[in-house]
Write a protein that binds this DNA or RNA. Structure first.
Length: 282
DNA sequence: AGTGTATCCTGCAGGC
DNA sequence: TGCCTGCAGGATACAC
């Protein structure tokens, strides 16, 4: 569910709300979100204050006192709720972990499907974890040339390439499809087949769509909620994702849905030609 | 190296 | 109303 803009939205909500609060108790409702031993996890988070809240790719990272990083991968339906009310739209419905703070408040890791994972890492483990992630697409140092060179190393479809967190961090199925539409690139094009100007267009499209989505507070299709339980506003700005059969906003051709890499891909068969610039239809 | 498939799990929409 | 199927912002492991 959450990709980079949703993780960023969560981080922005959590930062002012969590900084300085000390975790005094932990309640584990579902061990399956903990890849590590629950007892070890508990020892690593208990009696530590939150020093900072940041994001890496689509992961939310809580830096705790004394060199522990709480890394949260939200999977498809994970959310981090601060002091959620007992009822209403902002309430926790499927709590997996409940952290109690010294001031009586709490942070709930809520996750309907429990595909998410929460880990407490030492500095060494954090470094190892970090190595599995590619560059941040919004990093000012991430240049069009960097994307172009990286794409040249792979024959896999560019949509699959974008979803691989080791190649670039934070892109999921919504924004991969949206960026490819904006850059007019067919999702199935081999990564290495992109011309330099196409790679540059993709670089620009990725950044633009990610920034716009962050400004709108993320995309809510079904489940996404920010730290305060609010839905994101970018859904109404989606141009191809989840628009099968609806007219392309540029040319009116019905948007097509295809499946590969086990995920739905959406594209305009007219605007996003399968090969180079002047290929045939579909 | 790349791709199709299955797996983890729950909920919801749509067809009948 | 209920039952069944397919689908979902992710990630990984497997066989080919």
């Amino acid at each position: 569910m959450p990709e980079l803009p949703e993780a960023e939205t969560i981080v922005r909500g959590l930062r002012p709300a969590l900084r300085g609060r000390r975790i005094v108790r932990l309640r584990i409702d579902h061990e399956d979100v903990l890849p590590q031993d629950p007892a070890e996890f508990r020892d690593r988070v208990r009696d530590r204050r939150v020093r900072g809240v940041s994001r890496r790719g689509k992961n939310v990272v809580l830096r705790l006192h004394r060199e522990v990083d709480l890394v949260v991968n939200l999977g498809m339906t994970g959310s981090l709720l601060v002091d959620p009310p007992a009822e209403g739209p902002a309430a926790s419905t499927h709590p997996a972990l409940r952290f109690a703070f010294d001031d009586g408040g709490r942070l709930v890791y809520d996750d309907v499907r429990r595909f998410g994972r929460v880990e407490a890492l030492t500095p060494d483990e954090r470094k190892t974890w970090e190595r599995r992630l590619g560059p941040e697409p919004l990093d000012p140092d991430f240049l069009p040339r960097d994307l172009q060179e990286a794409l040249q190393a792979s024959r896999s479809p560019v949509r699959s390439w974008l979803l691989d967190q080791r190649r670039i961090a934070g892109i999921g199925n919504i924004y991969a499809n949206e960026a490819l539409f904006r850059a007019r690139i067919h999702p199935r094009r081999p990564a290495r087949s992109l011309e330099p100007d196409e790679a540059e267009a993709l670089h620009g499209a990725l950044r633009a769509v990610l920034r716009a989505a962050i400004d709108a507070g993320g995309t809510t299709i079904r489940d996404f909620r920010d730290a305060g339980g609010r839905a994101g506003g970018f859904s109404e700005h989606l141009q191809v994702y989840d628009r099968e059969g609806e007219p392309c906003l540029r040319c009116g051709t019905p948007v097509r849905r295809t499946v590969f890499g086990n995920r739905s891909a959406f594209h305009c068969p007219s605007c996003q030609a399968p090969a180079g610039g002047e290929g045939s239809a579909s």
